[in-house]
Design a protein around this nucleic acid. Sequence first.
DNA 1: GGGATTTTGCATCAGTCGCTACAAAATTTT
DNA 2: AAAATTTTGTAGCGACTGATGCAAAATCCC
Lengths: 195, 195
Amino acid sequence: MGRTREFDYTEALERGTRLFWQSGYEGTSLRDLLREMGIGESSFYNTLKSKKNAYLECLKHYNATVKARHGEALFSGPTASSGVRALFCCVLDCLDDPATPSPVCMMAASLTSEVLDEAELRDYVQDQITTLARLMVERFTSDKEAGLLPNDFEPESVVPVVLTYMQGLWRMALLSYSRPHFERQIDVFLTGIGL
Amino acid sequence: MGRTREFDYTEALERGTRLFWQSGYEGTSLRDLLREMGIGESSFYNTLKSKKNAYLECLKHYNATVKARHGEALFSGPTASSGVRALFCCVLDCLDDPATPSPVCMMAASLTSEVLDEAELRDYVQDQITTLARLMVERFTSDKEAGLLPNDFEPESVVPVVLTYMQGLWRMALLSYSRPHFERQIDVFLTGIGL
DNA sequence: GGGATTTTGCATCAGTCGCTACAAAATTTT
DNA sequence: AAAATTTTGTAGCGACTGATGCAAAATCCC
């Protein structure tokens, strides 16, 4: 089947993901990306076919690794409330980890016109957020049916609020972050909306 | 005094602001900016001294015009609660207005590393947000002292939550916006945190 | 009107952007 | 071993980036 690939695809993707995460889509130049991935343009355009597609693959890789932990956190703990709180705790852990390339979650960072203007990227981001929302609604609904949440608690209404607030959190962390302040703020928020 | 300026500075700034608002800081090229402002590079570098400074001036102009309405809304109405609700209504009006260059508030759009990496810009953004927070705290505090808000309501704790949520709102609007959904979501949020 | 000062248009700077063409190197199939 | 196929390194594409140099044009002070 021809010459064998010399570089480790997964590792290159891993490195690329970290750079995209750190510098954003347009903020990452192809040359910086290649240097970070440790490959040449030929290898790059051979496997990933364009910068846009590379970003998409990196986003998928990000979701499969980093973001997967958030999903697990949501379903950890005995109640939906504890799950959501674990999720936010997971977010703070991410912010505290010095190895994190950027304070902003890579998915949250993709909520920019530079990314959303690209149809394929937009579709993927849209889909991922919808999926997370559905998961959260399910978790809440089953808790409600079990009597763990009041009858006037409407998962369909609350979930968008939680998601929206979380988007804001990532952005605010960019401006200034302090774990105690954020923990307090999150608690005020979650307690307020009944979680 | 030399030759008189041929272009209208304020109008040029107005046009520049709209373009920056629409396309972001790095997303706006100098040539597009000049074409939109209707001036040449000489005039540009003569009055505004760099792209960075131009963005700062446009941000100030934005705050003095668009953002000022938000501040007024906060202090409109008889209670702090009605003020905050008026503020969010103002946000939705902005999203509905077809003349709005971008769904994202220009200040919110500045919560990006591409902007915050520039010290002067960061300082300004930081300062503006702090000011808005202080204003909101004051409004809440006076209401609380007047007995219009419960004793366990802590302005210092709630305000960051509101600001954070609003940041999230702008971002989510970028993904998909529908006034009824947003109105409902905002109501759930504000009611939840006691407003 | 002459000199000083400022604004303006135009050409251009060096550097970067994403991407591609092309041939040498390496591996499989025949 | 020869042909076919794939990967890799390098050089370069045209277009664009923010910014500058310079001289002509326009205005003010004397």
